[in-house]
Design a protein around this nucleic acid. Sequence first.
DNA 1: CGTCCTTTGAAGTGG
DNA 2: CCACTTCAAAGGACG
Length: 442
Amino acid sequence: YLQMKWPLLDVPSSATVKDTRSPSPAHLSNKVPVVQHPHHMHPLTPLITYSNDHFSPGSPPTHLSPEIDPKTAGIPRPPHPSELSPYYPLSPGAVGQIPHPLGWLVPQQGQPMYSLPPGGFRHPYPALAMNASMSSLVSSRFSPHMVAPAHPGLPTSGIPHPAIVSPIVKQEPAPPSLSPAVSAKSPVTVKKEEEKKPHVKKPLNAFMLYMKEMRAKVVAECTLKESAAINQILGRKWHNLSREEQAKYYELARKERQLHSQLYPTWSARDNYGKKKKRKREKQLSQTQSQQQVQEAEGALASKSKKPCVQYLPPEKPCDSPASSHGSMLDSPATPSAALASPAAPAATHSEQAQPLSLTTKPETRAQLALHSAAFLSAKAAASSSGQMGSQPPLLSRPLPLGSMPTALLASPPSFPATLHAHQALPVLQAQPLSLVTKSAH
DNA sequence: CGTCCTTTGAAGTGG
DNA sequence: CCACTTCAAAGGACG
């Protein structure tokens, strides 16, 4: 099960640092530099199943089925020490310098941490060869000069942190000095290095990790390729995940951040501020709109009859082109409120409150998102008051910013108690009116 | 070519 | 402390 679920997160269980290129037995035997994989050609194909929980292996990809039934997903995957970051193969400088806090193994110097089979993705055991996060990782987070050293195996070239994005195709740059002790340099030198220091990207959060893993799957099952639409689906699938499943990604993201901070102790997200184009004004505008429509949604939900900004979507409708599925592509067999409700709670419990969302047009999107949040809160509160949140981490007891509400309601991911068990009684959010989400209510 | 779209989450800024 | 903003991935769409 573990192999199927997280095939490439597997690494040698030995505590000895050795070649992680061949992490596991047979299923990662092909050693092809990841860079040889064309960026535009995603290695994953519909034939590749890496998550039996979410997709039936072998079944033709006919429908996108965001419905995820954790109950049928098999045994909850226990924490595995080998769940380490595939995204941060330590650089040569890091090897031997940074004892990985989690006991992760580091790749051999100058070696790609992960490899792809030749000729695209024809691994004899595709399901075990690589998951989406791996593939997307290698295709997007490694630049050729990083992972394809002229002399693989030589300690000279290494594997910089995948978060590093160097626009200049050069043999360098290596990741910033990894050990504070090693970086005893003059301020001038430091400044100089900082000027040309590579762009270190933010570590991926739980949802981003999830997207990386699942995107190919969704794309394979849909005809659409537009990321915006895919992301909408993924967002819904994310909500459909069980608490336990999400916890895996939260934990993974936590490890990512931990490793990232170790690799780049001086890095700050601030470093990347302003490096992307800002679209502040529009965001503010739409935010205002969403706030307005949250209130509308409140009323609608309060009356429990009308659903403005909400379009019901045919449950069985497979995801198709955005145009043809206008207003329907995002639906899933699972009712959103089932997803919105406590994942651990029986999905049917709140399914009658389904408020499927169709994030189609721009103005509506925000509103629907807001409504989504509102419905989420509603479902959460309902679940809470009905005593079905016992297995959930503590929920916040105060209103939350709209943007962070779902997260917070999901129980403060950063403090997500991975070891939480169903028998543990936890304080839960008291059932509150939907107006909680608004400032005025606050 | 650069930016937008779209998602969630983390971390930043500013009041 | 709170609200808001930015960026992380992705790739088609668009100016």
